[in-house]
Structures are given as C-alpha cells and as structure tokens.
Design a protein around this nucleic acid. Structure first.
Lengths: 197, 197
DNA sequence: TCACAAACGGAACATCGCTCCGTATAGTGA
DNA sequence: TCACTATACGGAGCGATGTTCCGTTTGTGA
C-alpha cells in the first residue's frame, strides 16, 4: 500500500508535513492553470519552496500528479460498483463509467497525454492508473460480457488505453471534450452485440 | 503550394541541394531507429552536417518530418479514390482506408504523438496532415453517409483525430499495433447504421 | 581568376528535469 | 532553558534539448 502522506509509521517533522500539503495545493493550482506538464520550477515557486523540497516529497513529477488526483481516482473506482448495482444493464453501467473516466481526464490539462508519455518518470503514474482503474473497468466489462451484451475479445486494459488516448489533447469543456465523449461512446457502441431474441 | 525542394523557381547551390537530400535520407533512418522525436543533433550528426544547416533547410522539425513522409501521405490520399471505386460499399472503403491510415501511423515511431503535440513547431505538421488527409477521408465518409451506411453526426476531422489518437504510443507491428487496428475498427463499427430493408 | 552571395558549422543561449550538498531548524534529553 | 542531532530545506549546478546567431567557407557567374 502506498503511503498517502498521512501515515504514522514514521512521524515526520511538522514543517515537512506542512510543506507536503502546501505542495499538493500549489501543484493542484498550477496544474489547472498551466497543465500537468507545468515545469517543476513553477510548482516550487508557487509553493514558495526550493527544488530540493519538491523532490524529497515527490521523487518524480508523476508522484506529485498522483498525490493531487488520488482522491478523484479513488472516487472513480468506487462508482463502478454503484453503477453496476443501479444501472438497468451492465453495458449501460460500463458506458456511464467510461463517461466519468473521460470527464475526469478531459478536465485535467495534459493528464491523458502524460499517461501515454514514454518518459520513464511517468511510469509510476501509468502504473497507478492501471492498478486502480483497470480492475474497476474490468468488473463492469466482465459483467457486460457475461450478460452477452458486449463482445468478449476486448479486455479492460485495451479499452482503457483506447479511451485514454481519445482524451489526449482535449482540454476544458469545449467541442473537443464533447468529441471525446462521443468517440468513446462510439467505441463502446462498436463493442455491443445485438440482443439475441 | 509548398516547395518540395525540387522546385526551380530559384536554383539553389549544388551543395545545398545535396545536403537537403542527405538530410532527408539521414532523418528517415534516424526516425526509424529512434523515433520522430529523435534529437535534432542526432539527425545532424547522422547527416554529417551542422545544426545550422538543418534549420536552414527545415525551419522546424515538423518540416523535416513532412519532407520525409510526404510521398507516403500523398499515396494514402490517392488510395481513397481507388478504394471507393473498387470496394463493395462506401463503408467498406472507409474501413479499409482507415486501416491504411493506422498502418502508416503505427509504423512511424512517435508520429501519432507528434501530431497531437501542442508544441508550436508541430503546427506545420498538423496542418499538412489535415490539409491532405481530411479531404480524402471526407470523400469516403460522405459517400458512406450518403449511402445510409453510417451515421452523419461525425465529421471527417473528428474521425481522423480519433483514429490518430488511437495510434499514439504504438510502435512496430506487435500487439499494440493490432489493438490500434481493432480499436479503430470498433470506432467505425460504432458509426454504422443498420441496413434498412 | 576573382568577388560575393549563398551556405555551412557549431558555439552559445534558454529551458527543462533532476541531483547534490552546505545550511537551517524542529524535536529531544539534560 | 539549552545544546545537539537527525531531519528537512534551498538553490546552484549538471546534462540534455530546441533554437538562434554569426564568423567562416565555398559554389558560381562574370
């Protein structure tokens, strides 16, 4: 289990705990203003700390990104079960959940792109997303497949990759965002099997 | 019309013409080996020329990329008409053409990613792709829509963007390439309308 | 042959991610 | 209250990269 920063295994110094929170807040603000790819220096400046401080708390920028969006990712994971229980069909639940995933990505400048970055430092981010979100997606996809609603030759990982890619370069809530939603919708529509009377 | 380098409006010096070709050849080789994002220095070194020479011939890296792939892009454009004439249906032609587009992107390390890059220097590349390929795609899509085979609420630009994005991060002919083909296939499947008796 | 425009090469500048180490300070036991 | 030490901080510095700039070299026409 990853240490979320509030763990008590080793109590950190008070200034360290304060700085970690300051950094998360500053990073969140900078990510909104300048995107997830904002220079580390800019985040350090916004938080009023030095470069060394950032890298001690968050060894790579990916760790900082995870720290900022952890709660939202976890929330996305937890909606999967609710949707499955409440939707009229597993396929509908899957479609709704993917829509939520797209919403999340589309409102974070550059996050979808960072997920696909080949930079080694983003491996952690990639891994975190996959660890958390793929199982959630798989639970919905498996249910839809078991119900005979969708084809079974596309796995959750591939589907998530595709949906993530379709969000690359989209920012804000404009036409591009609506296009991303529609394209992911088409993708899922393409997976549906005709109901067998 | 963009000057392809062989125009005769102003005859360039012999060494300049030679270097332009040397650069294109070297760039093609480096792109294969290290991807479209290879450092400019690496291309200059491979061509045995200085940095200044690269930038005089190709003001941005995008221009170099265009120079290297121009022929293949043009070929892709010209297949659209053939496919439309020879396929059994416009929708089938569209699907085949998109497959060719995916093939092209998937065999060029990082090209799909560069197309989505927000770097200003890639604008030229973006524009060239759109200028050439979107009309070709539109001709097929329009035909399919007119035949009542596909829905009419997705335009060629959006479709190309989506297909391009689905190829990001894919390299070589492995599983990822096959996934890209399948995902684009699903997208187009999602656009199909049921035949009306 | 000669002069000059054209073209070349690569040093230099700006920006970025990340590391390193000297300095400052929070927490603790006397 | 006061040292003392582990902890944390700050920012200069390194290596890599895209791009510009300018002194030097070279093709070419007269």
């Amino acid at each position: 289990m990853r240490d979320g920063g509030t763990s008590s295994t080793v109590r950190k110094r008070a200034d360290a705990r304060r700085n970690e929170q300051t950094l998360l807040d500053a990073a969140a603000a900078v990510f909104v203003a300048r995107g997830v790819d904002a220079p580390v220096r800019a985040i350090a400046a916004a938080a009023g700390v030095g470069m060394g401080t950032i890298y001690r708390h968050f060894p790579t920028r990916a760790d900082l990104v995870i720290g900022v969006y952890r709660h939202q990712i976890d929330a996305l994971v937890s909606t999967a079960a609710h949707l499955l229980a409440e939707s009229e069909s597993p396929a509908a639940a899957l479609a709704q959940w993917m829509d939520g995933f797209v919403d999340f990505l589309v409102t974070k400048h550059g996050l979808a792109g960072a997920l696909r970055s080949e930079e080694a430092s983003f491996d952690t981010l990639h891994a975190y997303f996959l660890d958390r979100l793929v199982p959630a997606c798989a639970s919905l996809l498996d249910a839809a497949t078991a119900a005979g609603e969708t084809r079974s030759d596309v796995d959750a990982l591939t589907l998530m990759h595709a949906a993530g890619n379709l969000c690359i370069g989209v920012e804000g809530g404009g036409d591009a965002a609506s296009d991303a939603h529609r394209m992911v919708g088409l993708l899922i529509a393409g997976m549906r099997l005709p109901a067998v009377g």
